[in-house]
Each structure stands twice: as structure tokens, then as C-alpha cells.
Amino acid sequence: MIRFDNICKRYPGTQDVLSQVSFHLDKGEMAFLTGHSGAGKSTLLKLIALIERPSRGQLLINGQNLTKVSRRRIPYVRRQMGIIFQDHRLLMDRTVFDNVALPLIISGFSRGDIERRVRASLDMVGLLNKEKQFPITLSGGEQQRVGIARAIVHKPSLLLADEPTGNLDPALSWEIMGLFEQFNQVGVSVLIASHDLDMIARLPYRVLKLKQGQLVGDGYPRRREPT
């Protein structure tokens, strides 16, 4: 699904923010990406989402080499993934429904398909009754769930989340994490950047640990090895 092969990334005027990062995430696998603030988690996700380009190394997603994707092709690669941001990035002047419908509109789905899929997606995150509201009228957790509904509405094969629970209290965080597990169970690959070590430790998923741009850990939490 995702293959990093000796990836280095430096921004103009910086040292390597990521250096020699190599790992492979299988189709249908769910993993966490941890590390202190500034370790390079967001940068790593941005490389996958083609927001940034690697300085060196090979990066493959679904077998396609991202380093060779032209600017024009970037949108079509992005449509294969769902991206969730810490700050939701919702369109504040559009209803919940319209926000969630956006990925479908972009791909030119028919109105009927859009309505059906948006409802299904909102149903999954438990916001079906709020489709006509504007994001500003929702709580932080609800806004994050709208962001998740938008990220999964087009049935992507890969879900990326950058600190999706960063601003939420523990109860809400668990709720959101439950959603990710749900998607993962139906075969979606999930990569979540998070520094919520407490929660990560209680979950049976693979953990990739970044430290100053280097991959220093790759394994499962000690307490509960997957069977």
C-alpha cells in the first residue's frame, strides 16, 4: 500500500527533516506514526498526500511511484486517499452535507449517488441528523467527525490522519479511534500520526516512531501483541 524507500526530505534552508526513512505498510493495515513535536510526522504524511515532494528516495503508493507523478496527475492520486486534519479544514460557509459531498462532486458523481453516499457516510460517524447545519454550530468532536465523513465518503483505499484527536478529550478521542478501527475492518489501510502515547499503547496496532526525522522504532505495543 505505502512503501517508503530511503526517503529524505529537506525544506528550503533546513537540514533533513526526514532522513533515510524506509518502511512498508500493507494493504488493509492500520498503523500509528508517533514522535515528539517536530519529529517529522506531518512531513511524512504530506509526502504521501503529495503536498510535499521527497528530496531523495522512492515513494510508492498502490504500486505507483509518487516521485514520478506529474502536477497534473496529483488530484487523481489524492482521490485514492482520504485525509483527515487536526484542524478539520471544513468549508465554514457550506452545510455539513455539502462539506461531505465535496469529494464526490469533484469526481463528478450524479446527484442521486451523492445523496446516498453522503447519508451513508454521515450515518457512520453518527451525524445524520446534522446534515443541514453549518460546521460552526457543531462541537469540536462533531466537526472532526464531519472531516472523517468527508474523508471516507468516496471509499478511499487509504486513510491518512494527522493528529485527529489532538484537540479532543479522551472520551471523544476513543470514539474517533473506534471509527478508524471500523474502517480498517472493512479493508481500508489507515495511517495515523499521533503523540497520544497513552491511547496508542492500549491499541494492538503497529507503531512507527520518528525521532528527529529518523525512523527509530517499528513494532507493536509491548502490552498486547496481536495474535
Binding site: L90, L102, P103, I106
Partner: peptide
């Protein structure tokens, strides 16, 4: 601007 950036992130083409 924000809206454009968000739509691009979701996979909108320049034409769209």
C-alpha cells in the same frame, strides 16, 4: 484561498 486549498487537498483538478 482556504476553500481552494481544501478542495485541492481533496483531489480537485485545476479545471474544477
Amino acid at each position: 484561498r482556504d476553500e481552494i486549498i481544501i478542495t485541492k487537498l481533496i483531489g480537485a483538478t485545476n479545471a474544477f
